[in-house]
Design a protein around this nucleic acid. Structure first.
Length: 421
RNA sequence: GUGGCUGUGGUGAAGUGGUUAACACGGCGGAUUGUGGCUCCGUUAUUCGAGGGUUCGAACCCCUUCAGUCACCCCA
């Protein structure tokens, strides 16, 4: 073989595209219910957008981007996520000049140079939501409810919603310092990763999966205790709205998002049976991002759902719909004279909106019948040289086995009538 | 980026140094004249991920490499 698909990529074959369409359609339905409009941004952007938007010290930017120089000497990056691009589009197309808030969703491929693993690919697909300009907790609640409702509509059970507030530029630095003060004493006992996190992003230390680090940071101060009035009010408001809507959530003071732009609300929906990659949905508020990208100060909030992970979860729960592509009519031919005549019938059937097919491999009559059966054809139109000569078609009902010889026009009418129901 | 496991036909797999690489499913063809689903028969890998080495001899041993998979990490 010449070559294989690049590592971490997957072909979505006919046998599974149906599932993808099902998930995508469900996403679109929910979005329209909540009045979110679809947006499609390019798959690549100027590298700078992600450097500024996502944050230069994040893992995504430091080691996971597909970056290259194009023929015009521009640095280009395959999008590792879509929030920064949506914000860019919001500014570039002056969407902020329309009535606000801007409520958008997207579905499409993202690219991250990660080591492939269960539920993790280098090209993967996300369904995401972004709401710009609204700053109260109501929009946070709406978005979280949208995510939950989407996953529930697919039938997923045992989802866990984790909630936290990561503060804002007013209160986070205060917390950061307090946390560093707390950790500084026995910093040398933490794992190497955590030691390097200490200076750059100490909040991640709380999220470390290393059990020793977990123990050491046991009594660490929590963000919740350091929130400024504004952040505290926002968080309380959100919790009230979610409770009012009967959405169950768990507070997780150690929940930290991996992208720098998050402020205030951070949330994650987990589906534990998935194993190591159990985060199905992650999102939060990013009130500083639009300004960071050169716009006027505009709040925003969004989430992304990993489609591959949703698919895995549905598979695990046997929640995938059965999809069979039934064929209405299979046209069978016998003899050379019959072929053009049969082909004409095939074309007419399709023109009138009936799904029809025929053999293109020069198979015997018997083999063509087998094929028709495998295609689950409701009817078979048999045309031999005799029928062709008399302008007739033998129409066979595959379920009952009955067949009758009809004029071409009558056969067409009958099939139209039968299939019309 | 680090580590564990794995790599035989379209698929699932047997085979762990000796001449023709089991088996099952699938694919294709057929079982008297122009008819499917069941059954039966035939056929379907000069070759065991790739490259190199050891040996009289390798799918089986060694090395390298690539890929898959799971975990760390990170995240959707």
């Amino acid at each position: 073989m010449l070559t294989t698909g690049p590592r971490g990529t997957k072909d979505i074959l006919p046998a599974t595209v149906g599932y993808w369409r099902y998930i995508e359609n469900t996403a679109r339905e929910i979005c329209s219910l909540f009045n979110y409009q679809e947006i499609r941004t390019p798959i690549f952007e100027h590298t700078e957008l992600f450097l500024r938007g996502i944050g230069e010290t994040t893992d995504i930017v430091e080691k996971e981007m597909y970056t290259f120089t194009d023929r015009g000497e521009r640095s280009i990056t395959l999008r590792p996520e879509n929030t920064a691009a949506v914000v860019r589009s919001f500014l570039e197309n002056k969407i902020y000049a329309d009535s606000q808030p801007t409520k958008l969703f997207y579905i499409g491929p993202m690219f991250r140079y990660d080591r492939p693993q269960a539920g993790r690919f280098r090209q993967f697909h996300q369904f995401g939501i972004e709401a710009l300009s609204a700053k109260g907790p109501a929009i946070d609640a709406e978005i979280i409810i949208l995510a939950v409702q989407f996953l529930e509509k697919l039938g997923l059970q045992e989802l866990k919603l984790y909630l936290n507030s990561v503060g804002c530029p007013t209160c986070r630095p205060v917390y950061r310092e307090r946390l560093q003060d707390y950790l500084r004493n026995n910093l040398s006992d933490f794992c190497g990763d955590c030691q390097s996190r200490f200076g750059r992003n100490p909040m991640r230390i709380l999220d470390c999966k290393n059990s020793r680090c977990g123990q050491l940071s046991q009594g660490a101060p929590e963000m919740a205790d350091c929130l400024c009035e504004d952040c505290k009010d926002h968080f309380e408001g959100l919790k009230q709205l979610l409770s009012a809507a009967n959405i169950e959530f768990k507070l997780n003071p150690r929940l930290v998002r991996g992208l720098d732009y998050y402020t205030k609300t951070a949330f994650e929906i987990q589906y534990e049976p998935l194993g190591a990659q159990s985060a199905v949905c992650g999102g939060g508020r990013y009130d500083g991002l639009v300004a960071e990208c050169g716009g006027t100060d505009t709040p925003g909030i969004g989430f992304a759902i990993g489609m591959e992970r949703v698919l895995l979860a549905l598979e695990k729960q046997s929640l995938l719909p059965t999809i069979d592509n039934k064929l209405a009519i299979f046209v069978v031919t016998l003899g050379e004279q019959a072929k053009p005549f049969a082909f004409k019938l095939l074309c007419e059937l399709r023109r009138s909106g009936i799904t029809a097919d025929m053999d293109f491999m020069n198979r015997s009559l018997k083999a063509q019948m087998k094929l028709a059966n495998k295609c689950m054809a409701s009817y078979v139109a048999i045309i031999g040289d005799d029928e062709a000569a008399q302008n007739k078609v033998m129409v066979k009902n595959m379920a009952s086995g009955e067949q009758e010889l009809l004029d071409f026009a009558k056969a067409l009418d009958k099939l139209n009538a039968e299939m019309g129901e």
